[in-house]
Simulated scan of single mutants.
Amino acid sequence: MGNKTIELQDLGLKDYKETWDYQEGLFQAIVDTKIRNRRQNAQETTRNHFLFVEHPHVYTLGKSGDMANLLVDQAQLDAKGASFYKINRGGDITYHGPGQIVGYPILDLENFFTDIHKYLRLLEEMVIRTLAEYGLKAERSEGETGVWLDVGTPFARKICAMGVRASRWVTMHGFALNVNADLGYFDLMIPCGIKDKAVTSLNVELGKAEVPMEEVKQKLLAHFTSLFEAEFKKK
């Protein structure tokens, strides 16, 4: 039986690049353990991590992304107080900012199951079940990773973006759920490279000025625990 305990950290508001570097360190430590185990025919337990974070305004472009989907230049980014990074996850362009819950599960999937497709579907299911607790019917959109509302209608809108990287069955990057996000920042890009689709946030859907972020995090963790048959411990 693999190690299904996950070390949980809430990093608060943290710079994207600093968080990315931190993720890379945790990711590489797990990969290194797996390499040692294979070379030495050992059974050293691999660790699992889950990071919650909010980022200052930032746009990130995945490996297969198109720069044309960022609709502003560096000077305009500077004027909006936003930064930009090309990164090593899948997917196209994504925005992160205050009021958005970003989750980075850094897991050895060999502790759970070895199926990236299943991993992504379970992350989506975690968000779908969380939003259901707020009375929202969220869904998947065929061929488009993430979580959406009113799929198949002219009013389809995305509420949660996802993009992951995996190597040797170790994951990094993850999901970004708009809770109290400033949706104006999405106008500066073509979200995930998908034209003619809107973006929304939980507070907008509920008609509230603000939804408690900690409340949403606890719901996400409860559904993650159930779906992955895992347990969390705070680091």
Rank of each mutant, 00 (worst) to 15 (best):
T171H: 11
N3D: 12
G193I: 15
Y104H: 07
E214Q: 14
A68K: 10
F84G: 03
K14G: 07
S167M: 08
A156W: 02
L227M: 15
D21Y: 10
E110N: 05
D182W: 07
I194C: 12
F27I: 10
M172K: 11
E7L: 04
V199N: 02
M189A: 00
I128L: 11
E142V: 15
L109D: 05
R39A: 14
Q218M: 15
K4V: 10
A198F: 03
G146A: 13
V31T: 11
N48Y: 03
H173V: 06
K234L: 08
R168Y: 11
D187C: 12
V147K: 00
V127W: 00
V31Y: 08
G135I: 07
M189D: 02
S141H: 08
K217H: 06
V170Y: 08
G193E: 01
I194Y: 03
Q43E: 14
T145Y: 04
R140L: 07
N178W: 02
Q74L: 12
I87E: 08
A156Y: 05
K233G: 02
E54W: 04
I87C: 03
N37G: 09
G135E: 13
I30P: 00
L188D: 13
T145C: 01
N48Q: 06
P105D: 02
A209V: 14
N88A: 12
G152I: 06
E44L: 15
M189K: 03
S167A: 11
F232G: 06
F27Y: 10
F113G: 09
I190C: 01
D15T: 03
L51C: 08
E7H: 10
P105L: 12
L109N: 12
G163V: 06
F84C: 03
L131P: 00
F52Q: 09
N41C: 12
A156I: 11
I190E: 00
E24T: 07
K63V: 05
K234Y: 10
D21Q: 07
N111C: 11
W169R: 01
K14F: 04
E44A: 14
L51F: 11
G207I: 05
A75S: 08
T45L: 13
N88G: 12
A79H: 05
M1G: 10
R168Q: 13
V58I: 05
K235P: 09
T145A: 14
V151D: 05
Q100K: 08
K234W: 04
V72G: 09
Q218G: 06
F113A: 07
A166F: 08
Q9W: 02
L109I: 05
V204I: 09
G25F: 13
K63Q: 07
H55V: 00
I106Q: 02
K17E: 14
T45E: 13
L221V: 04
G163P: 09
F112D: 03
P105W: 04
R89D: 02
G184K: 06
D108E: 10
H96Q: 13
D187F: 00
H96M: 06
R47A: 14
D196C: 03
I159D: 00
A82T: 10
Q218T: 05
T45P: 12
F155D: 05
K219I: 15
I128K: 07
A138M: 03
Y95I: 03
